[in-house]
Each structure stands twice: as structure tokens, then as C-alpha cells.
Amino acid sequence: MFLDTMFLLSALATLGGALMVVMSKNLMHACMYLLLSLFGVAGLYATLGADFLAATQLVVYAGGVVILMLFAIMLTGGVEEFVNKFGINKIPSMGTTKTYTIGAIVSLIFSFVILKTLSPLFKNYSQADLPPMESTVEDIGVLLVTDHALAFEISSVLLLGALIGAAVISRPRKINGGSK
């Protein structure tokens, strides 16, 4: 009962947020709806008993990714030019009916493929009795340093690379002269 309500609310937040990311004409608003959607996903994790994942989702997305996105939107200006520098008409950056139609067709194809794959699951899936939810923190910690130690190390290297790469790429360079 409680889980069902939580699931419905979280799914509503997730899908409503995602739909508004699609529909919104304002990039800033789209970003805030993305935040709502990500919170909904965190709620879904919580209903799945994945407490550590839910908290990680909150920390990484609400604290990091969304603020980064907002920063990038702010630094690149919200302005929209309808003409490029050669005077040719551009597709508006938030999309037109045409691009949305193409997107809808592609998603239709995707949905056919996915539903074809999933349909036996929907038909024949019988729900077994679920074990009670337990704390996953200790088990995830143990798994990270035993079974998945290599992936853990690689992801740390990846994050270090991303840190240095982002710093190097976005560093302002002198236009004439400089290192080149």
C-alpha cells in the first residue's frame, strides 16, 4: 500500500518531468524539470530498496550534474539566433514541429523494437515472493572491493581523467601567441 503510493508518486514525477523536458521551450525550465525527473528516479530506487543508489542519485545529480548544466546554460547565454553568420536560416535550437516529428518517428521505431523484446516478459512473468528490503550499503561496499574491484579502479581513473580533461578543455587560452 505504502510502496504502491510511493511508486505512483515517483513514477508521476519521473514521467512528468521527462515529458516536460521534451515539451518545454525554455532551456532553464527544461533543466529544472530534469531535476524533478531525477528526484523521481531517486524515489523509484527507494521503492526498489536500493537506498544507497537513491542517495547517490541525489548527491550526484542534484548536487553536481544539474548545477553544472545550469552553469553551462548561464555561461553560454540563453540567447537564440535564428540566422547563422552566413545569413542562412537555422532550425531554432529548441526544435520545430519537423524535428519533433522525426523524433516521434524514431521513438516509435524504438518502441516497436523494445516492446517486441519485452512482450514475452509482460505475458509470462509471474511474480515470486519478494524478500524484505535490507540495507544494501555494506554489501555494495564489499562488492565494490571484491568482485568489482577492477571496474572500481577504472572508474576512479575515469573520474580523474574527466576532472583533468574538463579543466584543460575549458581553460581560457590566449588567442594569439601562447603555447602553440
Binding site: D51, A55, T56, L58, V59, A62, G63, S135, V137
Partner: peptide
């Protein structure tokens, strides 16, 4: 919560 500190970090951001 058994993820109390982590939850607090995420929410306060």
C-alpha cells in the same frame, strides 16, 4: 536512515 549522512549531503545541495 542507514545512509543518513549521504542523504543529508544530497538533499542539502
Amino acid at each position: 536512515l542507514n545512509i543518513g549522512v549521504f542523504y543529508l549531503l544530497g538533499v542539502s545541495s
